[in-house]
Design a protein around this nucleic acid. Sequence first.
DNA 1: ATGTGC
Length: 473
Amino acid sequence: MTSLLEKIHDYIFRVKRTSSMKVDAYVVKHPTMSIELDALKQLIDTASLPHIFKHIVSTPDIHKGFGCPIGTVIASKQIVVPAAVGYDINCGVRLMLLPLPIKEVEKRSETLLSRIWREIPAGEGEENIQVDEFTLKEVCEKGLRFSSYSSTSWFKKYTSFIEPEELDWRVDADESSSTLSAADFKRVSYRAIERGSSQLATLGGGNHFIEIGYIKEVFNISGDLKRWASEFFTPEKELTYIMIHSGSRGFGHQIGDDYMKPAKSMRKREGILPNQGLGFFYKSEDWYEAYLGAMACAANFAYVNRALMGAIIRKIFVETLGVEPILVRDISHNIARFEKFGKQTVLVHRKGAVSARKGKIVLLPGSMGTNSFVLLGEEEKHASLTFFSSAHGAGRVMGRREAAGKRGRPGKVSWEEFEKSMEGIKWKTKSKRSALEEAPMCYKDVNLVVETTEKAGIASRALELKPKLVIKG
DNA sequence: ATGTGC
């Protein structure tokens, strides 16, 4: 199967269009890393969709997903593919910096960890802020801006901890606003509303996390990082960062489900379904606008979810240490947005991939025990081959069940092995199982992913971050 | 990822 990959650059390969494929698939990967067979099959399926703009691309952290791999970028002018956004609509990462050395933070680590654990429910099925349907509509359609006239008591509690700038400032690296204007609450099912109405300010499970650590290395401060004085990043200061990885919870998941099902059945009827997950809508169908309207609601829900968790954490830091974290960026890695490439405007779907335009901040979290990176987008050397897209993480190499075991059978990761891999890090997880499922050995080497990203000319490293305190759902 | 698994 690897013979399918034709080398066109040390770090870029191509699956040439054959049989069912309508376009080529470019694969950005480390020369020593192989793609799992299931993910490659899904990539070929994705390239078999009609009306794809130019070609499709995979990022170095590619692994098997539903319908299409996690780590896939596709663009189109005529169709929308819900599975190329994924179930966790606007899953993303929020990075904040705290102008205080990590040593000072570690002195209060028990207090910080237990307070965050108490105030931000982590894990599946957890609930936090309750909102009525009207408030949920405002959150979905206006995103962070809803605060300007919201008078609900829960919001008042946090509102002073949301940076005023967040209401208007484009927190996402992409040129489009963090609040997606296409949001249309009428397109959201009652079931999704039910699930979403108690899930704001919750972390979720799986690979979602809250992480506190320090800036370990500084490589390059330019582009959007120039907003902060360069002395801010002096590595000797070991300044603290806070990273939140979360998404749209059951709300977005329900919306994904609501639209993937009809997309599947409609295209199945016509016999143009590359695989069971890869349904899509034509622009000429009402479903197209409907999906984008509902997807934008879930995206805004996720932005607000991360903003509220950021506000809670900011409150905890102010109350515990008297210092306020500063928002750097909040970046989505599961979303479809209209973007311009030269004169063409296309709908770019990124699933497990982030926008990486020149000078823009790119967040590349590693696993719970390994370092993460802040990168800066480069002028793409390879002629918009990736649609300006970068990896969203290290990428799994081991399935959850494979790692933690199934039906009483032990998995590949032992508890001893896990504890060893987390040396020097204080951590809290919902269960032993979720810890094993997310163990560092379940992930690719993040250093190879960063090397690939740099060598392919997509983005280059700016900061290297080392985790010290971790909360996992 | 998900009120998780034919």
